[in-house]
């Protein structure tokens, strides 16, 4: 297991949970290395989207302008403000069946979290990408064998989510970030214990 894995999962969770504030943007821009995602520059398959995310962040202008631009992108993609055409709902339920939220994946996630003594807060759904990533981070940290199944769960819907980001993200940052997350999960898959490889059907 690569040592930075749990931290990177948690960093992605933060980035998809809330819009970036000025401090977040400054942290991501420090050393021009995407902050807590800096280690990914050298991960297999991660270099290209990592560069793309960095470039999109740089292109967003000064801190104040970047906060506004990336916040607008976040609201449009992840909070529904973009309407049906430009949304990339950060919920697993949005990419199965009818596309309605709070469907089976949410129930499954809530049950899985409950088995581990966890509950979701802030009126949020349990199949939010950030929640799934936080849980993955915790399971990996604990060496819990269920990490592989959760990894497979996330990897299963991430292509659709990343595609929606690619289609709707005018800033380019979140599209790159979603691609980077996918690459990270693909690389992580190789690091998971044998026999626990993800089933992406």
């Amino acid at each position: 297991m690569l040592p930075a894995t749990t931290e990177i999962c948690a960093a992605f969770a933060d980035l998809f949970a809330d819009p970036l504030q000025a401090g977040d943007i400054e942290a991501l821009r420090a050393d021009d290395a995407l902050g807590r995602l800096a280690p990914l520059a050298g991960w297999p398959g991660c270099g290209e989207p990592w560069q793309r995310a960095r470039a999109a962040l740089a292109a967003a202008g000064g801190t104040e302008a970047a906060v506004s631009t990336l916040n607008a992108a976040f609201c449009r993609l992840f909070l529904g403000v973009g309407g049906p055409a430009q949304s990339a709902p950060p919920y697993q339920s949005a990419y199965v069946g009818t596309g309605r939220l709070f469907a089976e994946p949410e129930t499954e996630m809530a049950a899985m979290l409950a088995r581990h003594g966890l509950v979701v807060q802030d009126n949020e759904a349990a199949d939010h990408l950030a929640v799934e990533l936080l849980a993955l981070s915790a399971l990996l940290a604990a060496g819990d064998p269920e990490a592989a199944a959760l990894h497979a769960r996330i990897a299963g819907w991430l292509p659709d989510f990343a595609a929606a980001c690619a289609a709707g993200d005018a800033s380019g940052f979140y599209a790159a970030l979603a691609a980077l997350l996918f690459a990270f999960l693909a690389a992580l898959n190789a690091e998971l214990p044998p026999g626990a490889a993800s089933d992406r059907t």
């Binding site: 509950v119 807060q121 949020e124 939010h128």
Partner: peptide
């Protein structure tokens, strides 16, 4: 404007390490 805390240990349960104290749950 603070970072959301999305996960917390449920009351009375033995939770995974690394999460803060619980506050009001969604249900």
């Amino acid at each position: 404007l603070t970072r959301r805390r999305l996960l917390a240990a449920s009351a009375g349960a033995s939770a995974l390490a690394g999460f803060g104290l619980p506050f009001a749950s969604r249900a």
